[in-house]
Design a protein around this nucleic acid. Sequence first.
DNA 1: TAGATTGTTAATCGATTAACAATC
DNA 2: TAGATTGTTAATCGATTAACAATC
Lengths: 237, 237
Amino acid sequence: MANRDRRLVLTSAPIRLAGRRRAAARLQTRPLERLMRYYQYVSEQHAPVDCENTPRRPTLHVTSGQIAKALDVDPTQVRKDFGAIGLVGLGRVGYDVCEVCRTIRALLRFDNRYEAVVIGAGHLGGALAAYGGFATYGLRIVAVFDNDKRKIGATVGGMVVKPIGLLGSYIGRHQIPVAIITAPAGEAQRLADRAVAAGVNAIWNFSPTQVAVPPRVLLRHEHISLGLAVLAHRLKR
Amino acid sequence: MANRDRRLVLTSAPIRLAGRRRAAARLQTRPLERLMRYYQYVSEQHAPVDCENTPRRPTLHVTSGQIAKALDVDPTQVRKDFGAIGLVGLGRVGYDVCEVCRTIRALLRFDNRYEAVVIGAGHLGGALAAYGGFATYGLRIVAVFDNDKRKIGATVGGMVVKPIGLLGSYIGRHQIPVAIITAPAGEAQRLADRAVAAGVNAIWNFSPTQVAVPPRVLLRHEHISLGLAVLAHRLKR
DNA sequence: TAGATTGTTAATCGATTAACAATC
DNA sequence: TAGATTGTTAATCGATTAACAATC
């Protein structure tokens, strides 16, 4: 009975939105990453191509057990995470695949578009610039910068590499919120400083070193060698 | 006094090694990653070039507070992690920089050499193959495979791209323990299966999808878009 | 010595897992 | 109905933080 009341509340649009806002505000990195993994799995393995826009009948379902097994997490964890973002399942049936996808997309704001610049036109910078998959999550790379004369003017991921000298004015003029740093360790901090000074709100750092930014700027390190160290250590035991 | 005894024990080679083994066996992913970050920071910011082989006088020191501040962790955490791997500091002085580096290198077996193949000669595969930084941690990429005729025969990171058809025999003949997968999502599982069948002990997966492997095989996903989702979500609040 | 730093215990916090009634 | 699955509470576990004596 209490449960039934709750579902009624949750299907009422404005209150449900408020619920989502609260949940979003509270989401820590770990739960966020789990939601992301649920989304990847469910959208790839279970969802019909365009189910997010045109829900099908009969509805497809996925159980917490399926997700848990595929992603090597606890089924209870999945149900808890889903409950926390307002997803309600059906006993003996599971969760509506399209609703799962839609809810996570909305919560994580995949449909908000953000533009980014890549700083460093090396192999990794090129890989990121050329990778189309980020668009799914709302990120579009719009420019690539480098300070190597041999790279400036070359085409990377369909974009002409610009000199670092133009970085600040480009970010300012186009109000770019994200800078992706793929420069070598020795230059990462200096380049991050320039991007921050020009006004970015977030730094996504792929250089193999730590960079420091003011508290107002979001920072995420993508420590690739760190993953390697973990793998190597386990391999060597 | 108790402390003094402990230090004497720890400097006795065989017992110290046993201590390390125990510590290593217990290390979970999180602590391992922290140790790795400590190493990166201390070796980059504090260590003289070759201090691991030829310790300098006067000895350089680093405090848990310095490390904590730079890496945004708790100083107590640093001291605990260091204590757990047998590092002993000096009151009011800190930890011997070279000893920190040497101990972590030994514990994480950076000097053990492991060979790896890259499967997928796209931008990301090329970036990994060309990146020299992995050598620091013991990984050497020795071959790159692809099934695209336009890529086979091309040179990536100094290596000639081989056809996927040769993957199994190459891994078997050279006893390659690690396969790095940078193929598109749709092919990742099939390629992982082939690498596993050929005998690799570990899969380092950069494809934007989950792959499944038998329990005997180590698996590490490097979920790059996952980092993006976290960043984007925080940016959008 | 005085004061900064370590090493360690205890307290807190949060995340994970177990258990099970409610549900379809 | 019977049985699989959800939703939720309680218990466990581990990680983080606080506190402080010992140390240099």
